[in-house]
Simulated assay, not measured.
Amino acid sequence: MKKKKLWYDYLWIWAIIYFALSFFYILFAWFGMLDFLLPLGIAIFGGNKFFCNHLCGRGQLFSKLGGDFKCSRNKPTPRWMSSK
C-alpha cells in the first residue's frame, strides 16, 4: 500500500529555495540560521525529535538526494548516529 503524501513531505523544496535565495539576499541566510536553531530548541526543550523526523527540510533533501536520485554510496547509517 502506498503512503499518502502529506504537506510536510515536500519541505525539502523549501530547503533548496532558502539556500539558493541566501546567496542573493542576506535575510534568507538568517532564516536558514533560524531553521537550524528552531529544531535544536524543540529537541532540547521538547525531549523528542518530531521536528527532525517529520518537518526537517534538510533531512528530507538529503533523503531525496541519497534515495530517489541515487547520489549516495548506499551504505547504512551508523548505529550511533540514529536513535528513537
Rank of each mutant, 00 (worst) to 15 (best):
S22D: 05
L65M: 07
N48L: 12
K70N: 12
R58I: 14
F50M: 06
I44L: 13
F19S: 05
G47Y: 07
L40C: 05
G66I: 00
F51K: 07
Y25V: 07
F19H: 04
A29N: 05
Y8D: 14
L61A: 05
K4Y: 13
A43I: 14
W14Q: 01
S82Y: 04
F51Y: 15
M33H: 10
Q60L: 07
K2R: 12
I42A: 14
F24Q: 09
F23H: 02
K84V: 09
S22T: 05
G57I: 02
S83K: 09
W12M: 03
I17W: 00
G57Y: 01
Y25G: 03
L6R: 13
L21W: 01
F62W: 06
L27T: 11
P76A: 11
G67Q: 10
S82V: 13
L65Q: 05
M1A: 08
G32H: 01
A20D: 07
I16Q: 04
K70S: 07
F51R: 06
S72W: 00
F69L: 07
K49I: 10
G32L: 08
S83I: 06
G32R: 01
L37R: 01
L11G: 11
N53Q: 15
Y10E: 00
G46S: 05
K70L: 06
W7L: 14
M33Q: 09
F24R: 04
K84H: 10
D68S: 06
F19D: 02
I42F: 08
F31D: 02
F62H: 03
L6W: 09
G66D: 03
F23N: 01
L21K: 00
K84A: 12
F50D: 15
D9S: 06
F23V: 03
W7K: 12
R58S: 10
K64N: 07
S72D: 04
F28C: 03
F19V: 10
Y25L: 11
F51H: 15
I16P: 01
I16H: 03
S83P: 04
A15I: 02
K4M: 13
W80H: 11
Y25E: 13
D68E: 12
D35T: 12
C71Y: 09
M33I: 10
G67A: 13
F23M: 04
D35F: 08
C71W: 11
W7T: 13
F24W: 11
K49Q: 12
G46R: 01
K2Q: 06
K4R: 15
F28W: 04
I13S: 01
L27Q: 14
C52P: 02
F36L: 15
A29Y: 06
G41Q: 06
R58M: 10
F50S: 13
M33S: 08
I13R: 00
P76G: 06
